[in-house]
Simulated scan of single mutants.
Amino acid sequence: MTNGDDLVTPYAWKQGADGKTPVINDNTNALTKREYFAAITPITIDDIPLPIAKLIMGNKPPDETMENVLWWADAEARYKVIKADALIKALNEQP
């Protein structure tokens, strides 16, 4: 079973006091699996049809302005998180 809140790298790969042992990560500089899966998911505007983007965002995009660019960036980010959650769910359903 995988947990989306688990760290991608539970060990900080630096030398411990003995010069050999990896030091356990203190959770301050590591991504969770959910964050990592979302970050590496390749998504572009072309991957999200407008009707799906509207469902994700709960509204239609603004007119052709900078707000439109920000709306699409937000839709892409939310879509990546949805895909990351789906991957974690699928991994947990495997025997």
Rank of each mutant, 00 (worst) to 15 (best):
M1N: 07
T2K: 14
N3H: 09
G4F: 08
D5N: 07
D5E: 12
D5I: 03
D5A: 13
D6I: 01
P10Y: 07
A12H: 11
W13R: 15
K14A: 07
G16F: 15
G19N: 06
G19Y: 09
K20T: 05
V23F: 04
N25T: 06
A30G: 02
L31N: 02
K33H: 04
K33A: 01
R34P: 00
E35N: 12
Y36D: 08
F37S: 06
A39R: 13
A39F: 03
I40H: 02
T44Y: 04
I45W: 10
I45K: 15
D46T: 04
D46W: 02
D47G: 03
D47R: 03
P49F: 01
L50G: 00
I52P: 00
G58P: 12
G58T: 12
P62I: 14
P62N: 13
E64V: 10
E64M: 11
M66F: 06
M66W: 09
M66A: 09
V69S: 06
W71L: 04
W71E: 03
W72R: 06
A73C: 07
D74A: 15
A75C: 13
E76I: 15
A77M: 04
A77Q: 09
R78D: 10
R78L: 13
V81W: 05
V81F: 02
I82Y: 06
I82W: 05
A84R: 09
A86S: 05
A86D: 12
L87G: 04
I88A: 09
K89F: 08
A90L: 04
A90Q: 10
Q94T: 07
